[in-house]
Write a protein that binds this DNA or RNA. Structure first.
Length: 440
RNA sequence: GUGGGAUUAGCUCAACGGCAGAGCGCUUCACUGUGGAUGAAGAGGUUGUGGGUUCGAAACCCAUAUCCCACCCCA
């Protein structure tokens, strides 16, 4: 035997035990169903990518969080994927024959070496849906409509999707005259407006060495309502990129209305910034106000990314749905459907004694053949122990058959939730149990 | 990556320099055809890990790991 080691997990990683797995699977199935309803196809890619595939795509800050994953004696420089958009771009570049627009979804783990916190893990699942090869703002609008479909289907009421445009932010930089190398600091300061207020943003800009005249110009802008497109259009009229961005935001909001998106839950917010460097067009982010847990979805248009892997550039837009945070929020707010069980098992077939074992096993296999998730007890234990097991696992039903039942050709069906028992003819048991399960 | 708090039985916590404990849970029994009720008995601990101070450390000091909180960033 090897030496004893205390069982531990790597930092920021966790096991997902069966009861939690059932919740996760429920959320994933809802999301997958909505994705497919909008015509997105499933895709899978390796957890590992060549390091060069990932490097230089996310910006220096994010790049520090990428996990190295070299084989001990391997020659390839490998890294664990950091998101699903870059692998998608690689796939599209490698498979030019894919029919465009290419709509795919992928639900898979990604790894980021961040400092863990509640709702922030180093290994976590992302659910991405992207459209490659469409320049129309209708594609972006469809992504937003899909986010709304997912969140409302999961039972979310208090959420808001914020919209901004990378080109508007770029124009804002041009307008204020902030040098390119300081733009990141400028955007990050602006992004905090809601959180730290106007004076906080001023302090943040000063801290980030934004020149004083630029600080004043930006602050004047921030005094406008953050969704006043007309006012911003006027101010940015000398900056074609800004105007183009505002045009696109207007088209986008119109399209979302045509798609039935509730306008009250969609807010243009010209101070919303997303960190990833590859965004080029509209950007969007969904936040819930109730538990403060950060954003539930985030995405945008990245028309330049695929061009980094291919001679022919392709436009792309999409979103990440933050399943981990959705699950955390739903757990906290008890949003899971009440009939979402704690176990997959629907019935426990008890074994009355050794002479009944064969009969119980046969009954169990019959139930399984009929599609009922069934467990059969292993040992010659008392019924008390067997029912206690069923109760501990929250198995809803138990079947009992001893000499009394045999004599009458019946089986006792016990409902563990109500404690009610009924005798059912042996040859009707599958049909009757099926009804009970359906009603539960 | 920076700063703060926490870490003792499976879980929630107590003991604050002098014999490591309680509640819940678990096992067995009261109960040879019935779980979540009651009563009794029992099992379970390198006090996160490694050093140090002390006659004596769960407690004080140092380091380290993990979790939580705030930054940073983000799903």
């Amino acid at each position: 035997m090897a030496t004893w080691v205390e069982p531990r997990l790597p930092r920021g990683m966790r096991d997902i035990l069966p009861q939690k797995m059932l919740q996760r699977r429920y959320v994933m199935r809802v999301i997958e169903n909505v994705f497919e309803r909008f015509g997105f196809e499933p895709l899978q890619t390796p957890a590992l990518e060549l390091a060069q595939t990932l490097l230089g795509k996310y910006g220096p800050d994010a790049e520090k969080l990428i996990y190295d994953a070299r084989h001990r004696e391997g020659k390839e420089e490998l890294a664990l994927r950091y998101d699903l958009s870059v692998p998608l771009s690689r796939v599209v570049a490698m498979n030019p024959e894919l029919t465009k627009p290419f709509k795919r979804y992928q639900i898979a783990p990604v790894w980021r070496a961040e400092r863990p916190q509640k709702g922030r893990y180093r290994e976590f699942y992302q659910c991405d849906a992207d459209i490659v090869g469409a320049t129309s703002m209708l594609a972006d609008a469809e992504i937003i409509a899909m986010i709304f479909a997912i969140l409302s289907e999961l039972g979310f009421k208090e959420f808001v999707t914020k919209l901004n445009h990378r080109q508007v932010l770029t124009a804002l930089g041009e307008y204020s005259g902030v040098p390119t190398e300081l733009l990141g600091g400028l955007y990050r300061a602006i992004d905090k407006l809601e959180k730290i207020g106007r004076d906080g943003v001023r302090a943040e800009m000063v801290k980030n060495q934004i020149p004083a005249p630029a600080v004043e110009k930006i602050l004047a802008l921030l005094d406008l309502p953050t969704d006043d497109l007309a006012a911003w259009r006027e101010i940015l009229r000398a900056y074609p990129r800004g105007i183009a961005g505002i045009d696109e935001l207007e088209q986008l909001t119109q399209h979302t209305r045509a798609l039935g998106v509730n306008p009250a839950r969609l807010q243009v917010d010209l101070t919303m910034v997303r960190g990833l460097e590859y965004y080029t067009g509209p950007i969007f982010e969904t936040v819930v106000t109730e538990p403060k847990i950060g954003s539930l979805t985030g995405g945008g248009r990245y028309d330049g990314l695929i061009g980094l892997f291919s001679k022919t550039a392709l436009p792309a837009t999409g979103t990440t749905v933050g399943i981990e945070r959705i699950i955390d929020v739903m757990d906290e707010l008890r949003m899971f459907p009440p009939n979402l069980g704690k176990t997959v098992t629907q019935v426990l077939v008890t074994v009355f004694d050794a002479t009944q074992r064969a009969a119980s096993l046969a009954l169990g296999m019959e139930l399984r053949a009929a599609g009922v998730n069934t467990e059969v007890w292993y040992d010659a234990d008392g019924l008390g122990k067997q029912l206690k097991y069923a109760a501990a696992k929250a198995i809803p039903f138990a079947l009992i058959a001893g000499p009394d039942e045999n004599a009458a050709a019946v089986i006792t069906l016990r409902d563990l939730n109500s404690g009610e028992q009924s005798q059912i003819a042996r040859d009707e048991i599958i049909a009757r149990l099926g009804e009970k399960i359906a009603a539960a």
